[in-house]
Amino acid sequence: MIETIFSRPESLREVSTHYCPGCTHGITHRLIAEVLDELGLRERTVGVAPVGCAVLAYNYFNCDFAEAAHGRAPAMATGIKRCRPNLIVFTYQGDGDLASIGTAEIFHAANRGEKFTVIFVNNAIYGMTGGQMAPTTMPNQKATTCPFGRDVETAGYPVRVCEVLSKITTPSYIARVTAAVPKEIPRAKDALRKAFQYQAENRCFSLVEFVSTCPTNWGMNPLKACEWAVSDMMPYYPLGEFKTPDDPLPAGLNLIEGDE
């Protein structure tokens, strides 16, 4: 009698993705699906897909899904969640979508403390459009629109989303994980589980950033891409929890709130 201890989660459809071989999007999708299964949330979940490589994410998850305009997934998720607060809502966004064109939407969704979960896939490049510079492209990293490498004098330094959003006063859960290192995958799942759990408890906005790879546009094989993510991205994008809803509010605010 063989007991299956690992197989495709119910929240993930039995279809082959369009992602390139070795792209960590697939792992990230599966982890979300596993968490939805484990928390029993699939039947009341609505996902919001981005524009970018994950634009077809709605074909892969076995739950209701909407397709947003580029960068607007947090606005769309706000509309869905506010109208139907009993739903579990998540957005799935890449670095161009979230950290460039959708900066205003993600910042203010976090600041309003919208009770949905954001999965942010940071692979330091625009994948779907063919390898252009992203807001998270590393200094000197080559891309088709910075063929000599990102020049920080003209393009600035890469945007660190977790660091920025965790400075917002409104309570939230902000964590950075990776699926590019096998032993980090269980930790990534822990972070996702917490993020969805906080949402299910109606506690706070949650965002989990995945330091991810793009073997195709980085011009590396999948293993080399994972190694590059560790050697070149993670020193600048450190893993860990940046903010939890249990963190104390700034002292000044407590004074304003009065004597409770």
Partner: peptide, 26 residues
Amino acid sequence: GHFIQAESEVAASNMIYGAACSGTRV
């Protein structure tokens, strides 16, 4: 009812796009 002041018209209109997707009059 529920009123939300969005951060921009871009966001407001995409919020009502989401709200409409949830089947609500908005």
